[in-house]
Computed example of a mutant assay.
Amino acid sequence: MVCHSEEFVLSVLQDKSYFNRLSDHLIEQILGLECDDFSRLRRAIDAVEAGSPTTRFPGDFRPSGLLAGYGHFHYRKGDWAATNLAAEFRKPITQSLDITVDALADKVVAKGGDPDAELEKLINKFSRRIGQASGDWVLYCDGLSGREYLAINQHTDPNSDEERELRRLLDRIVAGNAQH
C-alpha cells in the first residue's frame, strides 16, 4: 500500500528546498513507497542536505566502475534487516525475513545441526554487523543547481547486468533533466 495520496506526498515534497532537484523518475518511485519507507527516504535526503548523512560511506562510486560519475548514500527501507541478513548468508535478497530465517534453519537441519542454536549464532553474528549494514541506494549526480537526486535502487553487484541497466537508466534520467 502506498503512502496516503499522491497529493499529500507531493505537497510534503514541494515543501523541501530540494524538490526541484528530484528527478521525475525518483518522484514516481517515491509515490509508490509505503509511508514508513517514504519517511525514511525523506529523513535520509534531509540529513544529506544538512551535511550530516546518516549513511556510513556516502559519496561517489569508484572512478573505474560502471557507475562512475554518480554518487550514492543509503536509506533503510522497512525490509533492510531481511535484505542484509539474506546478503550476509547468500540468500535471495527479495524474500521476507521469515523466509530467510526458515531457509537458514532448513540448511542447518539438513546438516544435522540444532537449528535454534545455529540460528542464534547467525543472528548474533548479524547483530554485530548491523552498524555496517546498509539499505537501498539513493543515487545522485552533481548538477548546475546542486545535487540532483535521480533514483532509488537496490544494491547491484559490480559489473553485473543489473549494474549496466542501472547505468543506462541514470544516463537517461540525466539526459532528460538536461532537456528541461
Results as ranks from 00 to 15, higher is better:
86 A>D: 00
137 W>Q: 01
116 D>C: 13
138 V>W: 01
116 D>K: 15
152 I>F: 02
136 D>T: 07
101 V>G: 02
92 P>W: 03
82 A>H: 00
89 F>H: 08
93 I>Y: 04
104 L>D: 01
125 K>T: 11
132 Q>D: 15
79 D>K: 06
136 D>C: 08
146 G>A: 09
121 K>Q: 15
94 T>P: 08
82 A>R: 00
136 D>P: 04
126 F>G: 02
132 Q>L: 15
108 V>G: 01
122 L>M: 14
150 L>H: 01
92 P>D: 04
127 S>C: 09
111 K>A: 15
99 I>V: 15
89 F>M: 04
126 F>S: 03
94 T>V: 09
152 I>H: 01
131 G>V: 04
121 K>D: 14
86 A>N: 00
103 A>V: 09
96 S>F: 03
149 Y>F: 12
119 L>N: 01
146 G>D: 09
131 G>C: 02
119 L>K: 01
115 P>L: 04
101 V>Y: 03
122 L>R: 11
92 P>I: 02
119 L>G: 00
115 P>G: 04
114 D>L: 02
102 D>A: 15
98 D>V: 10
98 D>A: 14
115 P>C: 02
150 L>F: 06
98 D>C: 08
150 L>E: 01
125 K>I: 07
129 R>W: 08
142 D>P: 06
104 L>M: 06
133 A>P: 00
119 L>V: 03
82 A>W: 00
132 Q>Y: 13
145 S>F: 12
143 G>C: 08
139 L>N: 04
119 L>M: 06
100 T>V: 12
94 T>D: 15
152 I>N: 00
113 G>T: 05
138 V>K: 00
146 G>T: 07
85 L>P: 00
107 K>I: 05
110 A>Y: 07
91 K>F: 10
136 D>A: 09
92 P>N: 05
138 V>H: 01
138 V>F: 02
140 Y>W: 12
139 L>P: 02
109 V>C: 10
142 D>Y: 09
86 A>G: 03
106 D>P: 06
124 N>G: 11
102 D>M: 14
136 D>Y: 06
105 A>D: 07
77 K>R: 15
107 K>F: 10
143 G>H: 07
123 I>P: 03
83 T>H: 11
152 I>P: 01
79 D>S: 14
118 E>A: 12
140 Y>T: 04
109 V>D: 09
128 R>K: 14
129 R>V: 04
103 A>T: 10
118 E>S: 11
103 A>C: 11
89 F>T: 02
90 R>M: 12
132 Q>I: 10
147 R>S: 06
92 P>K: 04
131 G>Q: 05
105 A>C: 09
114 D>G: 01
80 W>V: 02
122 L>N: 08
130 I>C: 07
100 T>A: 07
121 K>G: 12
116 D>M: 14
92 P>S: 05
147 R>T: 09
86 A>C: 05
94 T>Q: 13
94 T>N: 14
113 G>V: 03
143 G>K: 07
79 D>G: 07
87 A>Y: 05
87 A>R: 12
116 D>Y: 14
97 L>A: 10
80 W>H: 08
84 N>P: 02
139 L>S: 05
95 Q>H: 13
129 R>C: 04
89 F>Y: 11
149 Y>P: 04
131 G>N: 05
122 L>H: 06
94 T>A: 13
143 G>S: 11
79 D>P: 05
102 D>N: 15
134 S>C: 09
